[in-house]
Design a protein around this nucleic acid. Structure first.
Lengths: 212, 212
DNA sequence: ACTTACCTGCACACTAATGTGCAAATAACG
DNA sequence: CGTTATTTGCACATTAGTGTGCAGGTAAGT
């Protein structure tokens, strides 16, 4: 096969059809996560096809990235609606929201840094908007009923929430800590909202059990 | 003057020499902040010179960005050493650290998103390393003496601290909140570390007075 | 086997950006 | 005024990546 392909995975069978579309999206997620400027050529051959084939599925780079964003957006919304528990205590609801976001983010980890730069701030904001809105609502409710502190306005707390979750997702496990978990993220968020560390721990553990 | 220059600032006199180097760095900060992929041409003419002149000061794109990073790094370190107060209570020290970082970040606001993508994670991490280390040290001290909660390991709290400060810096003022301040950032950080909202407020205000 | 759909391997044309070379204009400085 | 340092305006060579066209190859389905 033409130019030196270092070594691709086994790839037992190739059921052509739309399988390649999926393969391409997966490869794009991977490669663009590693380097948001990865060329279409790199992406294509990471998917086990040639560049020309990619154009058979996506007319241009933008379309590919859009498809990727749409995919993530969809899964995120699914997770939210599944995790939404309207009657719950604010602290429990917030913990649930963070845990749900974490699961999606965990799968799309690589995409985050890509989104930061290649999607443009607006698009990224749009994708995260439902989560943000939900968080703001919960936080406002909690500030009204005293579950959360009023040291900062709810939208600012929501921003902090989002940034902490993203940062924890983005940070690779290092020698200093053992791979941040959704549990850690949820705890951090609750405490930042003014819940005492002890209480936060309880809420998070409860949400963990409920969510599953 | 040659090719249509839409309209540059007045620019009363041009004291050639190294003045242009400064002008170029400033323009780079501005343009690259707006669009991290801005071409050298855009940067040069934003500085009021032609592209060819830029090459007279920086051999290539990388050198320019490096110079920019070095500049920011230097100012950041200056701010830290100025803000360091070894004997202080942990909560006060942390508030002081955040406030000091805020001032620098506030001036280099535009640079943050650039750093996120153009400098590479390692370089960015390197620039923020002293701040991070300082934060970890303060947080550990505070966890030992009970000022902060132990709900999360200090390095994770430091990461959260950093992410919140950066997020607040990066977020443009919107209708929902009136331009986050260093004070807000410091408060958010202290609360996230497990200080009660009421106490956090006091510490931050004290640090604000001391810092000035 | 035949048809359909997809993949491949080129070859192109095109664009945007980078980095250099050089001679002429221009400012700064003594 | 002359010297020196810089800037400017081209013109080039180069590179990397994008998007298309088209002729053949290969798998799948019937």
């Amino acid at each position: 096969m033409g130019t030196g392909r270092t070594a691709a995975e086994p790839q037992p069978r190739r059921s052509h059809a739309r399988s390649n579309r999926v393969r391409l999206l997966a490869a794009a997620r991977e490669e663009l996560g590693r380097d948001p400027d990865a060329s279409l050529d790199e992406i294509a051959r990471a998917a086990g096809v040639v560049r020309r084939t990619l154009y058979g599925h996506f007319p241009n780079r933008e379309a590919l990235i859009d498809a990727l964003a749409a995919e993530a957006e969809e899964r995120l919304e699914e997770a939210f609606t599944a995790a939404r528990r309207p009657g719950a205590e604010p602290a429990a609801a917030l913990a649930g929201l963070v845990l749900a976001s974490w699961e999606v983010g965990d799968h799309y980890r690589m995409l985050i840094s890509l989104a930061r730069r290649r999607l443009g701030e607006e698009r990224l904001r749009a994708i995260l908007a439902p989560a943000r809105a939900e968080a703001v609502a919960i936080l406002e409710r909690g500030q009204r009923d005293g579950s959360f502190g009023t040291h900062l306005p709810a939208p600012v707390l929501a921003l902090a929430t989002e940034s902490v979750v993203l940062a924890l997702l983005e940070t690779p496990p290092s020698a200093e800590w053992s791979d941040p978990t959704g549990q850690a993220a949820a705890t951090a968020v609750l405490v930042a909202a003014g819940v005492s560390p002890a209480a936060a721990r309880v809420y998070v553990e409860a949400a963990l059990r409920t969510g599953r």
